[in-house]
């Protein structure tokens, strides 16, 4: 999870930081044609999100504005923009990279902390209610197999996931 910063990254500032992050590699290919915005189902219904705008802000180096704002959390990860981008910017992945950086910088929406704690405790992000589990036999379903919680814990500890500071800042 530690991503080393070399000279080039530092020179390129925020966009360099993104480029060196898994998923963010293609950000500087963007030439702002707007295909992503026109493809975006979310941009169609709210002005709070425009993928082109997010990338533009990031390329301009507006780190704080990008990371603390709500826009990056409004991508629905539908990949429509990514399919059509004529510069092969992996837009959805760039947004993942931005979210990863945001979380490392302490900007975590509540629901994501919940996902994380579910994963850490049970190895699943949607908890299974006793009610549904009991009803399985009624529908002729076999008992559920246990989740590999121990393995997950080891993986999370190796990547440092379990050490992320889940600052309760409320929804950005």
């Amino acid at each position: 999870m530690v991503h080393e910063k070399d000279d080039e990254t530092l020179r390129a500032g925020f966009s360099g930081e993104i480029k060196h992050r898994l998923g963010g590699e293609t950000i500087t290919l963007c030439y702002q044609c707007g295909t992503c915005a026109a493809s975006c189902p979310v941009a169609k219904v709210t002005e709070k999100f425009n993928p082109r705008g997010v990338i533009k802000l990031a390329l301009l180096g507006e780190r704080q504005e990008v990371l603390s704002g709500s826009a990056i959390w409004l991508c629905s990860s539908c990949y429509n923009c990514q399919e059509r981008c004529p510069q092969k910017v992996e837009i959805a992945d760039v947004i993942y990279a931005l979210r990863n950086i945001a979380i490392m910088s302490g900007h975590t929406p509540n629901i994501y902390s919940e996902f994380a704690s579910g994963l850490m405790k049970e190895g699943r992000i949607v908890p299974i209610s006793k009610f549904v589990e009991k009803k399985r036999t009624d529908y002729g379903l076999p008992p559920l197999k246990s989740a590999g919680v121990e393995a997950i814990k080891k993986i999370l500890s190796t990547t440092g996931f379990d050490k992320i500071q889940w600052k309760k800042e409320g929804t950005p």
Binding site: C33, G34, T35, N80, R84
Partner: peptide, 11 residues
């Protein structure tokens, strides 16, 4: 009077 839209259509 030709109109110009800066933006690449998605579809």
């Amino acid at each position: 009077g030709i109109k110009f839209v800066k933006g690449r259509p998605s579809e």
